[in-house]
Design a binder for these strands. Structure first.
Lengths: 150, 150
DNA sequence: TGATATTAATTGTATAGACACGTATTAGTT
DNA sequence: AACTAATACGTGTCTATACAATTAATATCA
């Protein structure tokens, strides 16, 4: 299952750029599937997990919805609805922002923090297992990704 | 906007593996957004585009739904419904498979081929524009991605 | 001040991904 | 032949992405 060609049964690509784009899309699917498997028992989607992580990073300081959106990996996502799902599960709280009543302050609850730390135990070794690269190769690839986006 | 840290406003990562995974997710979103912009005028989603490409690669030989599924970048996707959308737009045809009546043969129509070749004109330079790497770097990264998945 | 523009958040709608389940058809086995 | 297993495809449901539109609150400025 190693090579991309084998995985998607395509013999050749127009050029290295085309192949790289396809490879990135395919590898993304590989990673997200693995993430899903880990988070499933916690009834969290990767996106919900990400939002909780962002909120925990605030150390109790309330964050607005748009600030969460800015920090999300997918800029076209919809933080408002994700927060909604998390609120229903009582993992976050909404508070009216007194300074600007258009904004809504979001804080992670104790239940949210607990769930996140439980997840962490399982997620700890996840990246190292799924990413079959050396540390140096991982660093090299991160740098290439930064360069790719310009 | 270069570095990942800046883009998602996260100061540090647990280790290079964690950073790489996050970087891949973020870069994926960057690529898909760009793809969407190009395909929008043609009323095609990246996934529908991919299915049409797979079908064209068959050179007129009918393909079953499960065969399309196997070649898709996202293995958890739903080829059946994607084909349905393409059929509504008359870009593909379904034919009952005489050899095995469980299967459904899919063929791209002339209208589908025309649309795909129109797209191609715009997609031609896409990868090279969006991926700001040298050819050698693109090849290096493709190899690293193959290795990443093991 | 009052009209206008901008911003924050939510909502609507279409498409797609994740995954379980149902149904028809074929393959395999005794 | 009859029973069972496997396969191909479709459907249902929930979640998320993409993007336009709406609403309420604040900022800007003539």
């Amino acid at each position: 299952m190693g090579s991309l060609e084998e995985a998607i049964k395509q013999k050749e690509f127009k050029d290295p750029y085309n192949k790289l784009v396809v490879n990135l899309l395919y590898t993304h699917s590989y990673l997200v599937s693995a993430q899903n498997k880990i988070l499933k028992p916690f009834d969290l989607s990767p996106e919900q997990f990400n939002v909780l992580r962002i909120l925990r990073g605030q150390n109790g300081v309330p964050t607005t919805v748009s600030s969460i959106q800015d920090r999300m990996l997918n800029k076209m996502s919809n933080a408002s609805r994700l927060v909604d799902k998390l609120k229903i599960k009582q993992l976050v709280e909404r508070r009216e922002c007194p300074a600007d009543r258009r904004q809504v302050d979001i804080v992670i609850t104790d239940k949210g923090l607990k769930l996140l730390s439980d997840c962490q135990t399982y997620m700890e070794g996840f990246n190292n297992e799924v990413v079959k690269l050396s540390e140096d190769e991982a660093i090299l690839m991160s740098n290439l990704l930064d360069k790719l986006r310009g």
